[in-house]
Write a protein that binds this DNA or RNA. Structure first.
Lengths: 232, 232
DNA sequence: TTGTAATGCCATAAATGTGTCACAAAATGA
DNA sequence: TCATTTTGTGACACATTTATGGCATTACAA
């Protein structure tokens, strides 16, 4: 049975996530600050951990750092603002995904499922932080994106954008969603900025052929990463 | 079958490393202090040894010194702080690699594989602690770096920096990563200092041609050692 | 101790990335 | 089809990040 730890000092958040986790069939345990989370982690053997960044006594970053010394449980960080992508995902912290508030519980559960699915595949492969879709490979650790082994030179924002879209294949993101996830919810900028980044990303991706996937526009809604299922 | 000794007084660390080692297919033996480690080393014929520096009864340094009197087993040291690179890697101690806490188990296993791979090539050659990438050779033992047989005069920090980057080809290191690994995690200095050392290192490396590799900047992230795969 | 090399820090220059806008192009629906 | 809405694109200003040279301090060897 999948065992999940939900750590957040906001009880409304933990209780709604608890409800959804139980609906999902997970064994759910709650913590309300970092110290408590650490204690529970030491005693239990969780399959996945949901960690709020801002918690009393010990913040989420510290908790992951502690956890990572000894274990490799998948961790999803919940952050109130657009913290630096690479800080959370990659090099410094080593979380498996991150979610920006405000979020919907469904979204969180989708991420949890995605991480668990991805991880179960990766026990065979060595590398984590590797997202592979058809001939597209996104490697967070090396900060490299390739299409059929061809290196695509993306900037940080472009990589974040691609990673965000591609890690939820098929899901439509509104411009506000993306602004919220990539720039933080307290960012007040032009919505159309997203368009510009999509344009730049597409230009670079189109340097190489990719028949089975694309960044698609959903008219009057937003963008999504689409994978065309092969007709095998 | 590869036989590995894991010596650390923290049982959580040994047990997680044991788990990963077994997953890797190694025969795994554990020790919880230096004396115990020594006894096991005398009785067994290990292929590789993981040694925590801070252990009760006999610290990691002493253990290696003892071991080195009689054997040449590859040793990877685990240190909590940025101990002097040359002390661990160089003439005094003669370890084959070192890892700074906190680490992820994958990272450790990657290092283990790397050391074993390197060593297996070196049985023919006499030298150990030799890192070779295309026309670049880093000799930790003699503290010498050459490009096409041309000696490159690097300072201590420059060598450490190069070695750190080059022994994880492709991996991006943030400035904080490097500060942590090279200066110790308790060092509070200017992040930009890393830039300066990269500058000096590059200047010296560029005295000689190297088409197939370079120290590359990942904008807004950090640095990495990049090897351009030859189109053989 | 003294001289020399190494190191760390800073200011400034250079390089690169990002956000905004105006207008063109495309999609939608009557 | 046309009017309207939405998206795509190129240009440009400006923000951010990195490279560089110089200088002060420290470490080290003679």
């Amino acid at each position: 049975m999948t065992k999940i730890l939900i750590a957040d000092d906001n009880k409304q958040i933990t209780s709604i996530l608890e409800e959804y986790s139980k609906k999902e069939g997970y064994e759910t345990i709650l913590a309300y600050d970092g110290i408590q989370a650490m204690e529970l982690i030491k005693k239990n053997n969780f399959d996945i951990i949901l960690l709020d960044v801002m918690m009393p006594k010990m913040d989420g970053f510290e908790v992951v750092r502690e956890v990572r010394k000894e274990s490799d449980v998948p961790v999803i960080m919940i952050t109130a603002r657009g913290e630096d992508f690479e800080r959370i995902m990659g090099l410094d912290i080593g979380a498996d995904d991150y979610i920006v508030k405000p979020f919907s519980p469904q979204e969180v559960m989708a991420r949890v499922r995605a991480v668990l699915r991805r991880l179960s595949k990766e026990t065979i492969m060595q590398k984590k932080s590797l997202l592979q879709i058809d001939n597209l490979v996104i490697d967070i650790e090396d900060y490299v994106v390739t299409i059929d082994k061809n290196k695509v030179m993306l900037t940080k924002k472009e990589l974040e954008l691609l990673w965000t879209l591609a890690s939820s294949i098929g899901k439509v993101f509104t411009r506000d969603n993306l602004l919220n996830t990539l720039w933080g919810y307290d960012y007040f900028g032009d919505t159309r900025t997203v368009d510009t980044h999509v344009k730049r990303l597409r230009a670079k991706l189109n340097e190489y052929p990719h028949e089975n996937w694309d960044v698609k526009t959903i008219w009057a809604v937003g963008y999504k990463f689409e994978e065309k299922k092969n007709e095998e």
